[in-house]
Design a protein around this nucleic acid. Structure first.
Lengths: 122, 122
DNA sequence: GCATTATATCACTACATGGTTATAGACTAC
DNA sequence: GTAGTCTATAACCATGTAGTGATATAATGC
């Protein structure tokens, strides 16, 4: 079955949007990044990201709800891990897209500057 | 230059998060979808998506700010177009990821139901 | 000029969200 | 048992955001 978003119903669109929303917060990206090299518990993630513990727990709950991470209880600790390595491929693709955008906006900005202040006009 | 998000500074993480945030709203996904087959003006997009005109303009401004769409004035009309077709590839990848997640959550739910109510126990 | 059309923006409401502090619940060590 | 540790959650505040209706701005046709 071919997968594209061209013909999606409202429910599917909401799912896609929720997935993107889970990735739309810098601290959540940091948390996911901290899980690249394997499962970690909340304390470890808290230390690695520098966020408060309650904040990390809330972000992890959201990521878990969105299906991006898996939870595994172990004693009093909760170990979280990436549900699907494809998540990182996705982020890397976005890195590429963002790089293009930043470059494009930088070029427009340069062009605009050049237009506003012609060279050697001092 | 290899592009991945493993070693990103805060500014880059914010850029990535903003990109994802632009895609985290169902109506914005509808708007992008409506631009698949070429540039359209605000009135056309408004009609295609069923949103209010002010709402569409706001979403388009956000998408433009994020670098996802290009604007082109033509008389009193503004024509918008997709800045980069890679956006759709990205969305399609997410469709695949979401499909996996929904399936996984569906399986867990089934397993949970089976655990809670053993078969033939009536 | 005037009316019309197209778009952007303002003002506002309702709601969601990120962050913090304090705390409750669960396990472990003693 | 008690103390200590780990995590989740509640309460709260500040901010952000989606949506709407009204309006301002700009171009077009007459």
């Amino acid at each position: 079955m071919k997968l594209n978003m061209q013909a999606l119903d409202d429910s599917a669109l909401t799912h896609i949007a929720n997935y993107f929303r889970a990735l739309s917060e810098p601290n959540r990206l940091r948390i996911l990044n901290s899980l690249r090299d394997g499962k970690k518990n909340v304390s470890q993630i808290t230390q690695l990201t520098g966020c408060g513990q309650a904040n990390v727990s809330k972000h992890l709950a959201l990521l878990h709800e969105a299906g991006l991470v898996l939870r595994e209880a172990q004693g009093t600790a909760s170990y979280y891990s990436i549900a699907d390595q494809a998540t990182f491929s996705l982020c890397d693709v976005v890195c590429g897209n963002v790089a293009k955008i930043v470059e494009r906006q930088h070029l427009s900005a340069s062009a605009l500057r050049a237009q506003l202040s012609p060279p050697d006009s001092r």
